[in-house]
Protein backbone atom coordinates (compact mmCIF):
# COMPACT_ATOMS: atom_id res chain seq x y z
CA UNK A 1 0.00 0.00 0.00
CA UNK A 2 1.42 3.39 -0.95
CA UNK A 3 1.91 5.99 1.77
CA UNK A 4 -0.10 8.55 -0.13
CA UNK A 5 -2.40 7.84 -3.02
CA UNK A 6 -4.04 10.63 -4.96
CA UNK A 7 -6.71 9.29 -7.29
CA UNK A 8 -8.64 11.17 -10.01
CA UNK A 9 -8.51 14.41 -8.04
CA UNK A 10 -10.56 17.17 -9.70
CA UNK A 11 -11.66 20.63 -8.60
CA UNK A 12 -13.48 23.23 -10.63
CA UNK A 13 -13.78 26.91 -9.81
CA UNK A 14 -16.76 27.92 -11.92
CA UNK A 15 -15.81 27.01 -15.46
CA UNK A 16 -12.11 26.64 -14.69
CA UNK A 17 -10.83 23.15 -14.03
CA UNK A 18 -7.95 23.98 -11.68
CA UNK A 19 -6.98 20.37 -11.04
CA UNK A 20 -8.01 17.86 -13.65
CA UNK A 21 -8.12 14.11 -12.91
CA UNK A 22 -4.80 14.08 -11.11
CA UNK A 23 -3.47 10.74 -9.88
CA UNK A 24 -0.11 9.89 -8.37
CA UNK A 25 1.31 7.89 -5.49
CA UNK A 26 4.05 8.35 -2.93
CA UNK A 27 5.88 5.47 -1.26
CA UNK A 28 7.36 5.56 2.21
CA UNK A 29 10.71 7.34 2.35
CA UNK A 30 10.22 9.24 -0.90
CA UNK A 31 10.55 12.87 -1.79
CA UNK A 32 8.00 13.62 -4.47
CA UNK A 33 8.15 16.92 -6.32
CA UNK A 34 5.20 18.59 -7.95
CA UNK A 35 6.35 20.92 -10.72
CA UNK A 36 4.81 22.85 -13.55
CA UNK A 37 4.59 26.34 -15.01
CA UNK A 38 2.94 29.18 -13.08
CA UNK A 39 -0.77 28.61 -12.67
CA UNK A 40 -0.50 24.89 -13.28
CA UNK A 41 -2.45 24.17 -10.08
CA UNK A 42 0.34 22.99 -7.80
CA UNK A 43 -0.67 25.00 -4.73
CA UNK A 44 -4.29 24.06 -5.35
CA UNK A 45 -3.24 20.43 -5.00
CA UNK A 46 -1.74 21.17 -1.56
CA UNK A 47 -4.90 23.04 -0.57
CA UNK A 48 -6.91 20.00 -1.65
CA UNK A 49 -4.73 17.57 0.28
CA UNK A 50 -4.86 19.62 3.50
CA UNK A 51 -8.62 20.19 3.52
CA UNK A 52 -8.64 23.89 2.62
CA UNK A 53 -10.55 22.99 -0.53
CA UNK A 54 -12.89 20.04 -1.03
CA UNK A 55 -12.42 18.36 -4.39
CA UNK A 56 -15.36 17.88 -6.73
CA UNK A 57 -14.18 14.38 -7.48
CA UNK A 58 -11.44 12.03 -6.44
CA UNK A 59 -9.75 10.59 -3.41
CA UNK A 60 -6.76 11.32 -1.25
CA UNK A 61 -5.67 8.22 0.64
CA UNK A 62 -3.12 8.33 3.43
CA UNK A 63 -2.13 4.76 4.33
CA UNK A 64 -5.38 3.69 2.72
CA UNK A 65 -7.62 6.12 4.61
CA UNK A 66 -9.59 8.62 2.55
CA UNK A 67 -9.00 12.20 3.70
CA UNK A 68 -11.49 13.89 1.38
CA UNK A 69 -14.19 15.76 3.27
CA UNK A 70 -12.12 16.16 6.43
CA UNK A 71 -11.57 19.60 7.92
CA UNK A 72 -8.09 21.10 8.13
CA UNK A 73 -7.66 20.21 11.80
CA UNK A 74 -8.63 16.58 11.17
CA UNK A 75 -6.13 16.39 8.31
CA UNK A 76 -3.39 17.68 10.62
CA UNK A 77 -4.23 14.98 13.12
CA UNK A 78 -4.13 12.34 10.40
CA UNK A 79 -0.60 13.42 9.58
CA UNK A 80 -0.33 16.03 6.84
CA UNK A 81 1.42 19.28 7.69
CA UNK A 82 2.28 22.09 5.36
CA UNK A 83 4.27 25.26 4.80
CA UNK A 84 3.24 28.19 2.63
CA UNK A 85 4.59 29.71 -0.56
CA UNK A 86 4.71 33.19 0.96
CA UNK A 87 5.93 32.55 4.49
CA UNK A 88 3.08 32.65 6.97
CA UNK A 89 4.62 32.83 10.41
CA UNK A 90 2.74 34.16 13.40
CA UNK A 91 4.38 37.54 13.17
CA UNK A 92 3.83 38.93 16.67
CA UNK A 93 4.79 35.72 18.41
CA UNK A 94 8.18 34.41 19.45
CA UNK A 95 10.08 31.67 17.65
CA UNK A 96 9.28 29.31 20.52
CA UNK A 97 5.56 30.10 20.39
CA UNK A 98 5.47 29.47 16.65
CA UNK A 99 6.79 25.94 17.19
CA UNK A 100 4.39 25.44 20.11
CA UNK A 101 1.49 26.26 17.80
CA UNK A 102 2.75 23.60 15.44
CA UNK A 103 2.39 20.97 18.15
CA UNK A 104 -0.79 22.38 19.67
CA UNK A 105 -2.98 19.45 18.66
CA UNK A 106 -0.74 17.12 20.64
CA UNK A 107 -0.94 19.25 23.81
CA UNK A 108 -3.84 17.65 25.60
CA UNK A 109 -5.35 20.17 27.93
CA UNK A 110 -8.36 22.24 27.05
CA UNK A 111 -9.55 25.81 27.29
CA UNK A 112 -10.78 25.55 30.87
CA UNK A 113 -7.50 24.24 32.25
CA UNK A 114 -5.75 27.08 30.40
CA UNK A 115 -7.25 29.60 32.79
CA UNK A 116 -5.35 28.68 35.94
CA UNK A 117 -2.23 26.75 36.97
CA UNK A 118 -2.76 23.03 37.42
CA UNK A 119 -0.65 19.91 37.23
CA UNK A 120 -1.95 18.78 33.85
CA UNK A 121 -1.18 22.15 32.28
CA UNK A 122 2.27 22.31 33.91
CA UNK A 123 3.09 18.81 32.73
CA UNK A 124 2.14 19.48 29.11
CA UNK A 125 3.75 22.90 28.98
CA UNK A 126 7.00 21.52 30.35
CA UNK A 127 7.01 18.64 27.92
CA UNK A 128 6.05 20.81 24.94
CA UNK A 129 8.76 23.35 25.71
CA UNK A 130 11.41 20.65 26.00
CA UNK A 131 10.36 19.26 22.64
CA UNK A 132 10.31 22.73 21.12
CA UNK A 133 13.95 23.11 21.99
CA UNK A 134 14.74 19.83 20.27
CA UNK A 135 12.91 20.87 17.12
CA UNK A 136 14.65 24.23 17.12
CA UNK A 137 17.98 22.42 17.35
CA UNK A 138 17.06 20.34 14.32
CA UNK A 139 16.35 23.43 12.24
CA UNK A 140 19.30 25.33 13.73
CA UNK A 141 17.35 28.03 15.53
CA UNK A 142 17.95 27.14 19.17
CA UNK A 143 19.68 30.47 19.79
CA UNK A 144 16.67 32.48 18.62
CA UNK A 145 14.18 30.94 21.04
CA UNK A 146 12.66 34.14 22.39
CA UNK A 147 13.15 36.34 19.34
CA UNK A 148 10.16 37.64 17.45
CA UNK A 149 9.59 35.36 14.48
CA UNK A 150 9.59 38.12 11.86
CA UNK A 151 12.87 39.57 13.12
CA UNK A 152 14.68 36.51 11.78
CA UNK A 153 16.46 36.70 8.42
CA UNK A 154 14.55 35.27 5.48
CA UNK A 155 16.29 31.91 5.28
CA UNK A 156 15.75 31.27 8.97
CA UNK A 157 12.08 32.20 8.68
CA UNK A 158 11.76 29.43 6.09
CA UNK A 159 13.48 27.03 8.47
CA UNK A 160 11.17 28.09 11.29
CA UNK A 161 8.13 27.47 9.14
CA UNK A 162 9.42 23.99 8.31
CA UNK A 163 10.10 23.46 12.02
CA UNK A 164 6.57 24.51 12.84
CA UNK A 165 5.21 21.98 10.35
CA UNK A 166 7.52 19.28 11.77
CA UNK A 167 6.24 20.00 15.28
CA UNK A 168 2.88 18.59 14.27
CA UNK A 169 4.60 15.18 13.91
CA UNK A 170 3.31 14.70 10.37
CA UNK A 171 3.59 11.54 8.34
CA UNK A 172 3.91 13.64 5.22
CA UNK A 173 5.41 17.09 5.04
CA UNK A 174 4.08 19.38 2.30
CA UNK A 175 6.52 22.11 1.33
CA UNK A 176 5.28 24.88 -0.96
CA UNK A 177 8.27 26.43 -2.72
CA UNK A 178 10.73 26.26 0.16
CA UNK A 179 13.64 27.59 -1.92
CA UNK A 180 11.84 30.69 -3.20
CA UNK A 181 13.90 33.82 -2.71
CA UNK A 182 17.08 32.03 -1.63
CA UNK A 183 20.55 32.45 -3.06
CA UNK A 184 22.44 29.45 -4.58
CA UNK A 185 24.38 28.70 -1.40
CA UNK A 186 21.23 28.75 0.69
CA UNK A 187 19.46 26.55 -1.84
CA UNK A 188 22.27 24.03 -1.70
CA UNK A 189 22.05 23.90 2.07
CA UNK A 190 18.25 23.67 1.97
CA UNK A 191 18.40 20.69 -0.40
CA UNK A 192 20.57 18.73 2.02
CA UNK A 193 18.34 19.82 4.88
CA UNK A 194 15.11 18.69 3.18
CA UNK A 195 16.63 15.34 2.31
CA UNK A 196 17.67 14.91 5.97
CA UNK A 197 14.07 15.48 7.05
CA UNK A 198 13.24 11.99 5.84
CA UNK A 199 14.53 10.86 9.24
CA UNK A 200 11.61 12.74 10.82
CA UNK A 201 8.76 12.05 8.41
CA UNK A 202 7.63 9.21 6.17
CA UNK A 203 7.45 11.27 3.02
CA UNK A 204 7.83 14.77 1.62
CA UNK A 205 5.73 16.39 -1.08
CA UNK A 206 7.49 19.37 -2.53
CA UNK A 207 6.45 22.15 -4.86
CA UNK A 208 9.45 23.90 -6.30
CA UNK A 209 10.40 26.03 -9.27
CA UNK A 210 14.13 25.70 -8.91
CA UNK A 211 15.05 22.73 -11.11
CA UNK A 212 18.46 22.26 -9.54
CA UNK A 213 16.83 21.73 -6.15
CA UNK A 214 14.09 19.53 -7.59
CA UNK A 215 16.44 17.31 -9.57
CA UNK A 216 18.88 16.85 -6.71
CA UNK A 217 16.44 15.80 -3.99
CA UNK A 218 13.41 14.18 -5.63
CA UNK A 219 12.81 10.47 -6.00
CA UNK A 220 9.86 11.11 -8.22
CA UNK A 221 8.58 14.12 -10.12
CA UNK A 222 5.00 14.83 -11.14
CA UNK A 223 4.60 17.49 -13.81
CA UNK A 224 1.40 19.48 -14.02
CA UNK A 225 0.19 21.77 -16.78
CA UNK A 226 -3.21 23.45 -16.77
CA UNK A 227 -4.21 21.28 -13.82
CA UNK A 228 -3.55 17.98 -15.54
CA UNK A 229 -0.63 15.61 -15.13
CA UNK A 230 1.49 15.52 -18.26
CA UNK A 231 4.30 13.34 -17.01
CA UNK A 232 5.53 11.42 -14.02
CA UNK A 233 8.84 9.70 -13.34
CA UNK A 234 12.37 9.95 -12.03
CA UNK A 235 14.27 13.23 -12.53
CA UNK A 236 16.12 11.76 -15.53
CA UNK A 237 12.91 10.62 -17.19
CA UNK A 238 11.18 13.92 -16.69
CA UNK A 239 14.10 15.97 -17.95
CA UNK A 240 13.99 14.25 -21.33
CA UNK A 241 10.25 14.16 -21.76
CA UNK A 242 9.26 16.21 -24.85
CA UNK A 243 5.91 17.22 -23.37
CA UNK A 244 7.61 18.71 -20.31
CA UNK A 245 10.03 20.65 -22.44
CA UNK A 246 7.13 21.94 -24.47
CA UNK A 247 5.15 23.00 -21.42
CA UNK A 248 8.08 24.92 -20.02
CA UNK A 249 9.75 26.26 -23.11
CA UNK A 250 7.28 26.09 -25.96
CA UNK A 251 7.10 23.87 -29.04
CA UNK A 252 10.15 23.40 -31.18
CA UNK A 253 9.67 25.12 -34.50
CA UNK A 254 6.58 26.99 -33.23
CA UNK A 255 5.99 30.73 -33.50
CA UNK A 256 7.25 31.39 -30.03
CA UNK A 257 10.26 29.23 -30.23
CA UNK A 258 12.44 30.00 -27.26
CA UNK A 259 13.98 26.57 -26.99
CA UNK A 260 16.08 26.91 -30.11
CA UNK A 261 18.10 29.84 -28.89
Amino acid sequence: MPLLEVKDLTIRFGGLVAVDNLSFTMEKGQVVALIGPNGAGKTTVINLLTGFYTPNEGEVRLNGENLVGMSTDQVVEKGLSRTFQNIRLFSNMSVEDNILIGMQHRIEYGAFLSLFPNSKKNHWEKEAKAETLEILKKVGLEDSLSEKSTSLPYGKQRKLEIGRALAAHPKILLLDEPAAGMNPAEKQELSTFIRSLLNEVDGILLIEHDMKVVMSISDKIVVLNHGAKICEGTPAEVQNNPEVIEAYLGKKGGHHDVARG
Partner: peptide
Amino acid sequence: RNLQAMRDDSIAAEAMG
Protein backbone atom coordinates in the same frame (compact mmCIF):
# COMPACT_ATOMS: atom_id res chain seq x y z
CA ARG B 1 -1.25 30.91 22.10
CA ASN B 2 -3.91 29.55 19.78
CA LEU B 3 -5.83 32.82 19.99
CA GLN B 4 -2.73 34.83 19.19
CA ALA B 5 -1.95 32.55 16.27
CA MET B 6 -5.46 33.12 14.91
CA ARG B 7 -4.98 36.86 15.36
CA ASP B 8 -1.66 36.90 13.49
CA ASP B 9 -2.65 34.63 10.61
CA SER B 10 -5.92 32.74 10.65
CA ILE B 11 -5.06 30.66 7.60
CA ALA B 12 -1.76 29.44 9.00
CA ALA B 13 -3.52 28.80 12.32
CA GLU B 14 -6.06 26.66 10.53
CA ALA B 15 -3.29 24.83 8.71
CA MET B 16 -1.75 23.98 12.10
CA GLY B 17 -5.01 22.34 13.13
